[in-house]
Amino acid sequence: MLDINPILLLATFVVFLSLIAVLNSWLYNPLFSFMNKRDEDIKKDLQKVGNNDDEINALYLEAESIVNNAKLEASALREKVIEDAKELADSKLDAKHAELASEYLEFEQSLAESKEQLVSDLMSQVPLFKDAVKAKFSQI
């Protein structure tokens, strides 16, 4: 039935071993070396990314501090501008108050002069009024 041929078995074993040796040198070793090199490259890239994360965090903190400083400066500048505007408004208000006070005094003086002139005019007209009143009473 089935006979085992030792020469054929030995030849098959030799071909198998030579095939393994050839595949090992031509296929498996280059493939393993490529995979090891790729793993090393991945590790290096991960380390670089880790370093980049540190740099990014440092730059982010620096940017945040710059923004905070700018906000503080803007706040101080805004406060200064508001204070200057208040002082300017107060000075304008004081000047207007002084101007209005002087105008009011002038008005009071002119009113007093008008009153005196009116009183003097009326006093000068009193004799005429007396005569007119006497004439009216005499007609009654």
Rank of each mutant, 00 (worst) to 15 (best):
L46F: 11
L105I: 12
D54I: 13
V15W: 02
I42C: 00
E40R: 07
K86C: 02
R78K: 14
D131A: 09
S18D: 04
P30T: 07
L100R: 04
N68D: 06
D54Q: 06
K37I: 03
A135R: 08
L100K: 08
E103K: 15
S75C: 01
L19M: 04
I66H: 00
K115R: 11
K92Y: 12
V119L: 12
E55G: 05
P6V: 04
V67S: 09
D45S: 03
G50I: 02
A58D: 07
L2Y: 01
D84L: 08
R78E: 09
A63L: 06
N51K: 15
V133H: 04
L77Y: 11
E79P: 01
K48Q: 11
V133D: 06
L2H: 00
Y104C: 14
K96C: 12
E64W: 05
E83I: 06
S102T: 14
M1Q: 05
K43S: 05
E108T: 13
A95R: 14
L19T: 11
L17S: 06
K48I: 12
S75P: 00
H97E: 09
L77W: 14
K48D: 10
I66N: 05
K48C: 03
A112G: 02
L105R: 15
I140Q: 06
L77I: 09
K136W: 01
L72H: 04
M35K: 13
I7Q: 00
L105W: 11
L128T: 15
A11K: 09
E55D: 09
G50M: 02
L72W: 02
W26L: 14
E55W: 15
Q117E: 03
K130A: 04
D41E: 12
F32T: 13
A95P: 07
Q117L: 10
L46Y: 06
A132G: 01
A112K: 10
F16E: 07
K130D: 02
V126Y: 03
L2W: 02
I7T: 00
F129Q: 09
E79A: 14
I66M: 03
V126A: 03
E106Y: 09
F129Y: 13
L118A: 15
L31Q: 13
D53V: 15
I82Y: 07
N36E: 14
A112T: 10
K86L: 13
L46H: 07
I7P: 00
L2I: 14
K48R: 14
I4A: 00
R38S: 11
I20G: 00
D131K: 13
E113Q: 08
N36P: 03
Q139T: 08
E113F: 04
L8M: 02
A21P: 01
A85R: 11
N51H: 09
N57F: 07
A76Y: 10
V119K: 11
A101Y: 13
E79Y: 08
F16G: 06
E55A: 13
L100A: 10
V22H: 04
I66D: 01
F34S: 06
K92E: 15
L72I: 07
V81R: 08
L77C: 04
E99P: 10
L77F: 08
D45R: 02
R78A: 10
